[in-house]
Structure formats: structure tokens, C-alpha cells
Nucleic acid binder design. Structure first.
Lengths: 335, 335
DNA sequence: TTGAAAGCGCTAACAT
DNA sequence: ATGTTAGCGCTTTCAA
């Protein structure tokens, strides 16, 4: 069995409170401090965070619930957050719910039982039902990427309407008129926002929205392949496509590739996310690039402030970040 | 505050042991079971796993320490493992150590304090020093992808020598002789294995190993870019390259792209990992494909057996999995 | 500064 | 089948 504080107390002849005080930054006489440190060394003592958590009602652990770890956008954000959280002594329990509402609810309940100090969630269930019970604990929730109407909590978002607008605007500037959209599932917040931006850009330039040019993918690679195939088949006059997430962008490139449709000669393309992939394509892809680093940092910081912050914070913080465009060579000037 | 078992006891008029028994599958009279369930419902009771963990000395949590979450190979494996672990009631605390030995040691100590029931590790420090203390707890360790000499524990590996041999063999069959290697850091186990396979393949076909054709990258995208640029510059007679991980494969494709070197006309290429990326390239890449799903499953299963298994297991299980080749069009027949 | 003791929420003997 | 009780390892009053 691992050594306990009791063992240290016995070995040093000191009381439990003194040892505890030592670990919690209290004042301990110099010679006792030395005795304690020797005992720790010899016994290989490591604080038992479980016991501490039970007593203090704080586990120094935050739960992270996301739709797919196996999705570069999510992985990058988690990687960044975990780094910051751990450097502040917090562990991250990551739960991948496979874009499944039932699993998402289960994950939140699971984390509730684990008594995590807070939850960071990129929500799948847009009703927020999965968070209701947890919210009653009064512990902080930070939502990433997608807002939920009914839930009042902090939120780190990306300005997706603007992102899509800029992307489609660039195509229009190059004289494209028949611009296809490979959108995401209609129930996903970001997908709706990006669709909105697409429509806004068209309308602002006096181009009519054509339903036939809009295709709802499912944010997966295979979905992107299918969508682009469908779009190309159904719209011989289409000259450009805007793809609204990374996986589908990759899928669209695969699809064009395998159909033998040349880019940008036959079809111009603006994709989403993942700079390295954009650079690896031939020709390099023009893409919307999301600030994953910044999302990670903001989210972790807000969570840490809620957990540790002394000063009063506003009721719920909403941060909206802007995207960049990486200019590749996948857009051809039309006409 | 959250409801406790005491609250349920009070509300139902039953004793603590009965409630505990209810939660742990003991026998409880039907009418009491109903009373308990009503109380749970009304009080929104959720078991406190922290308290349970303190008592049972088992946290139902496993630690996962990896070099980079932001690396598709790692992300895929974690995603798969987490799924299986959670479906068995285990949480996964993921620690990304950024390929830093110091951070890796810190992560393991951190997890030790958190009293995780076991650790899954894709090791960075090949001396295994970071695991010594944890191993003294007697709790299970499962290593992924890289074996450590000094540490006796379970291990799920990929047959990387064979993988590289097959890959290089394919190039030789197409009459390539001057085959470049973009290898990984020399201190990484898999990198050495892949290098071994490369050499073995050349020797078996009577081709002399040329140091100038070997380049050590760092397993990153940017490293791949640099490596391919160097190799192409230094070796005008080189006709093919074998790249030994996904990030560098992407980097190599970017490099060729940006140098304007055509593939496979000027340079044939065999890459590593990530089927979708291979398909998205033009032309599609021929790659070595690692069984990430299977690695995840095997690892999680071994861990679960160590944690729950009644039957006696061998001292340390070593599983070695085979790779596949995905045939793209990035190899040109030479001469 | 240090020690004694209570208690966080749960499980597991043991007794009934 | 159910109740009583001790104790997991820690923090935190309260006294000394």
C-alpha cells in the first residue's frame, strides 16, 4: 500500500495537522519541514487526491465532452486546453460521445458522478437537456463552438456567419455565380451559421439562392465525397463549391480527384480548417481557418477563472472569435 | 449540496447498508427497492464516485499518457480506447506530454496522485524512468507502440520492421534503386524499427545503403517539408522516397508540391498512415496503413482484463499487429 | 506552531 | 434482509 500522511506523522513524531499544513503552504518550523521532507522521500509519499477531493469537495478535474476526438478541430482544441488545465493542476477527463445525444447525456452523468469541478462541452444535443442536472450543482459549464438557447453559461464561439460570408464573397469576386454549398447537418449550430453566411453573401451580391446547389453533408469525410459527387452530377453549370468543415473538405477533394474533375479548372473550391492539409493539396486549397489555439486558450481560461477566480465575473461570458482565410490556388477567375 | 446516501436513508427510513446494497447489486425487498428508487428520483441522487473510490481504493479511472494528442495516429487510438473503457465504467484522463520527457514524468506523477487504476502510455522516455514509481504501486501499465527494455509490462506493438520492408520492397519491385528515407528521430523506437526495415529490404535486394539518402525528420509536418527538400536537393538521382509517419508524409507532399516536383513522374512516394489523406492526394498516395482501431481495442481489452479479470494472465502480454498497404498511384515504374 | 478529533460519503464487517 | 459501526486519507476547526 501507498504511504499516507499518517505514516509520515508516525515517522516524524508530528501531528497530522502539521503534515497537512506543510502540504498546504502553512507555516512549519524549519527542522520539522526537513523531517517531513525526509519522510516523504523515504516513503515515496504522494498526496492522495481522492481523499483530498472527498474532503474539500473539489476534485481538481474537469470533464470535456465532445462529439468526436477523431476530428482534427476537436483534437486541436482539447490538446491546447488540456495543456493549460494541467499546468494549473487540473486533470481533464475526455469523453468522446460519437455525435450521439444519448452517449452525450451518459457522459455528462458519468462526469457528475465523478464529481468533476466543471464541464467543457461542444454540444451535440442542442436542447441542452443533457446539461440540466449538472447545472443544478452550480458548477461551471463552458460551451465551445455551439450555443444553446435554454442554457445560461459561458460560451466560446467562432463567427461562422462572417466566415462563410468571406469565403463565398471571394468566389463571387472571381465572378463565380453558380456556387455549390456542402453544408453540415441542419441541427448543428455551426452548420446553420455557415449556411446563413453563404446565403447572406449571395444575396448581398444579388445572386439568387438555388436549392439545387445546396447539399447537406454529415461533417464526415465520406459525407464530403458523396456530397461533391452529387453536386457535380446534378449541376453541370456549377463552377465553384464551398465546403464547410475539414472532414468534408477532404472528402470533396477525394471526390473531385476520383471523378477526375480538375480543380480549379473545372471546379473552384474553398474549404474549411486544417492549414497543413490545404498546403498539401495540389493545387493548395484556399480555406477558412479557425483559431483553434485561441479557442482552446479562451475556454481553459474562462473555466479556470470560474474555478479559482476571486473577482466577480459577469453572469455569462460569450466570446466570439474571428476566422482567417488562407489563400491557396484553388479558385479560378471565372468568365 | 448534492444528495448523499444518508439523505436517502433518512427519507426512506432504511439503513445505510441497505442503500449501499441496493447500489451494489445486493438483495433488497421489493417495496424497499421502490422506496429507494423514488427517493433517488426526487433527490436527484448520483453516486459519489470520489467517496466510493476512497473506500474501495479503486477510482475506475485510467490514465493515458501520449506524446501528442494533436497527431492523428494518437487521436484515433485514444478515441477507440476511451470508447471501450467508458462503456465498462472507466474514465480516461488523457495527458498530452508534448513529446517532452519532463512533462511525461510529471503526467505520470500527476496520475499517481489521482490514484488512477492503471496507466496506458505511448512512451517518450525510452529509459522508462518515468514509470518506475508508478510500477511500485502494482497497478497495471500497458505500453502502446513502443517497447521499453527495463520495464516489464504489457505491450501492444506494430510490426514496423515488416511494414517498412514491404513498403520499400514495393519500390524496389518497380525498379527503384535510389530510394530516400525520411525517418523519425533516432531515439524513437518505431523510427528505429522502420529504419531497420528499410535497410533490410535494400540489403535483401542487393542494393547498397547510401547514407546520403537517409534523412532524420522529427515526426512533424514541417520536419517532413524540410526533409524532402533536403533529400531532393542533395540527391538528383533519387527516384523515390519512403516517409515513415503521417505528419511527415503530409510534409513531404507539401514540399514536393511547393518545389514543383511532380509525383510520381519525378519522385515516387510511399507514405504512412491516414487513408483518407492518401485518397485526397493527387495522385492518391500509396501508404502503409496501421491498424489503429485494433491497437485501441487490444490495449483497452488488456487493461480491462488486468483490472477486472479473474483468471490468471501471463506475466506480460506482448501483442504485435501487422500493417496493410493501401495502393495508390504514387509509385512510377522505373527504367 | 502544533496536536486532537470530527467528518467528507461511501463500503463492508458484523450483528440482528 | 436490514441496521450499526468502523474506517478509507485527507482537511479543518478548536485548543493548547
Amino acid at each position: 500500500m501507498a504511504a499516507t500522511m499518517k505514516d509520515i506523522a508516525r515517522r516524524t513524531g508530528l501531528g497530522l495537522a502539521t503534515i497537512s499544513s506543510y502540504f498546504n503552504g502553512g507555516n512549519v518550523r524549519e527542522k520539522n519541514r526537513i523531517k517531513i521532507e525526509e519522510a516523504i522521500e523515504e516513503l515515496h509519499y504522494e498526496v492522495n487526491e481522492v481523499a483530498r477531493g472527498l474532503k474539500t469537495n473539489a476534485t481538481k478535474t474537469v470533464g470535456v465532452v465532445i462529439p468526436e476526438l477523431n476530428n482534427v478541430f476537436c483534437a486541436e482544441i482539447i490538446s491546447g486546453m488540456e495543456d493549460i488545465l494541467r499546468s494549473h493542476g487540473y486533470a481533464a477527463i475526455v469523453c468522446d460521445c460519437r455525435t450521439d445525444k444519448k452517449l452525450e447525456k451518459e457522459a455528462v452523468d458519468f462526469l457528475t458522478r465523478k464529481r468533476v469541478d466543471g464541464i467543457i462541452n461542444m454540444p451535440v444535443d442542442m436542447t441542452g437537456a443533457h446539461l440540466n442536472e449538472f447545472q443544478k450543482t452550480g458548477k461551471p459549464i463552458v460551451l465551445i463552438d455551439r450555443m444553446i438557447q435554454g442554457i445560461s453559461c459561458d460560451c466560446v464561439l467562432v463567427d461562422n456567419v462572417n466566415a462563410a460570408e468571406k469565403a463565398v464573397g471571394m468566389l463571387v469576386e472571381q465572378q463565380h455565380q453558380k456556387i455549390g454549398l456542402i453544408g453540415g447537418p441542419d441541427e448543428v449550430f455551426t452548420a446553420r451559421q455557415r449556411m446563413l453566411g453563404y446565403m447572406k453573401a449571395l444575396k448581398d451580391h444579388g445572386i439568387a439562392v438555388d436549392e439545387k446547389l445546396i447539399c447537406h453533408g454529415d461533417y464526415t469525410i465520406q459525407g464530403g465525397v458523396q456530397a461533391v459527387e452529387e453536386l457535380v452530377k446534378e449541376n453541370p453549370d456549377m463552377t465553384a463549391v464551398f465546403v464547410t468543415n475539414y472532414e468534408m473538405t477532404m472528402g470533396a477533394v477525394i471526390g473531385l480527384n476520383e471523378m477526375g474533375v480538375s480543380m480549379p479548372e473545372e471546379i473552384s473550391l474553398v474549404g474549411f480548417d486544417n492549414l497543413p492539409f490545404a498546403r498539401a493539396c495540389r493545387p493548395a486549397l484556399t480555406i477558412v481557418s479557425q483559431p483553434t489555439e485561441k479557442i482552446a486558450r479562451e475556454t481553459a481560461q474562462i473555466m479556470l477563472e470560474r474555478l479559482e477566480g476571486r473577482e466577480e465575473l459577469p453572469d455569462h461570458i460569450v466570446r466570439k472569435l474571428q476566422t482567417d482565410i488562407f489563400m491557396g490556388k484553388s479558385i479560378r477567375r471565372q468568365g
